[in-house]
């Protein structure tokens, strides 16, 4: 299985923030959740992948094409924050403007999706709800047969019904072979529902990249009365309170804990919460 996304040692320095040797890869055909606290570098990484910012060093390959090869964008579907369509555009204007750039554009497929997503072809973009805007963007990506979707918080700010619909569209998109999604999110239930793998970024550096099940099976939540000093380094997102402590630990690190320590299987939510707490405490 080849990689749809390969990022190696990407560095980008800003005043007060840096992407620090960001490296990860996403195999073809997988849906990858890109998570991390606000300001951790998710959007910056996505922008670097699109050439919107210039990295100081490192290498980015999308769909096996080198950095700077714009032809790869013919096979990309991108949505950062929200679709970049003009406020006065109707879905028909969107087609008129976008279609010439994609050789694989299928107009009948586009109209099919507009009708399925109940998008009024004469309604201006500014009058659409956020959920409808997302659906319009997905209709565009599906109509030019994008092989890789890069989505920045596609479900952020949506009500549960709209979120469910967007996740269904993403799931349906993945049915065809060799299609890949990288989506950033703060909503861990989205990860539970559609992600095959997770990349966790914190303070501009990748702290986990692997299968969703790996993340869960490699960690456990630990609670107890007092954490021994030699174990403090292994504790992820340690929180101490009057009754004791709680933290996340890898399975390799739980040996040697005092007998009063209770270990529980970690859920994705736990992993993300404790990892975020660690990044805040760092």
């Amino acid at each position: 299985m080849g990689s749809a996304i390969e990022i190696k040692d990407v560095c980008k320095q800003y005043p007060g923030f840096a992407l620090n040797r960001v490296s990860f890869s996403v195999p073809n055909g997988l849906c990858c959740g890109f998570v991390g606290p606000n300001g951790a570098g998710k959007t910056t990484t996505l922008k670097a992948m699109l050439g919107m910012i210039h990295v100081d060093r490192g290498e980015i390959r999308l769909l096996n094409k080198p950095d700077g090869d714009v032809t790869v964008k013919e096979e990309l579907g991108v949505m950062l924050d929200q679709p970049y369509f003009q406020e006065d555009w109707t879905p028909l204007d969107v087609e008129k403007g976008i279609k010439p750039f994609y050789r694989g554009w299928d107009g009948s497929e586009y109209r099919k999706y507009l009708s399925r997503f109940e998008l009024d072809t004469n309604k201006k973009f500014k009058d659409l709800s956020r959920g409808m805007k997302m659906k319009l963007a997905m209709a565009v990506h599906l109509s030019h047969d994008a092989k890789l979707l890069l989505l920045d918080e596609p479900t952020g700010g949506l009500d549960p019904v709209a979120r469910d619909e967007i996740l269904d569209i993403m799931r349906e998109y993945m049915v065809k072979d060799e299609r890949t999604i990288l989506f950033s999110t703060h909503i861990t239930s989205d990860l539970e529902r559609i992600a095959d793998m997770i990349v966790y970024i914190s303070n501009g550096a990748i702290s986990f990249c692997g299968g969703k099940d790996d993340l869960v099976s490699r960690h456990c939540v630990v609670r107890g009365g007092r954490l021994p000093e030699e174990k403090r380094k292994a504790a992820i997102g340690l929180r101490e309170h009057s009754n004791g402590y709680e933290c996340l630990m890898t399975l390799e690190d739980i040996g040697g804990l005092p007998p009063d320590a209770i270990t529980e299987r970690a859920a994705i939510d736990d992993c993300i919460v404790y990892m975020e707490r660690r990044s805040k405490n760092a």
Binding site: K73, L80, F85, Y102
Partner: peptide, 18 residues
């Protein structure tokens, strides 16, 4: 004038154009 309000440049940079 419309590029920043409607992020026209960002749209262009997601398209297969240099």
């Amino acid at each position: 004038a419309v590029e920043e309000k409607g992020k026209l440049d960002n749209l262009y940079l997601t398209l297969p154009v240099t």
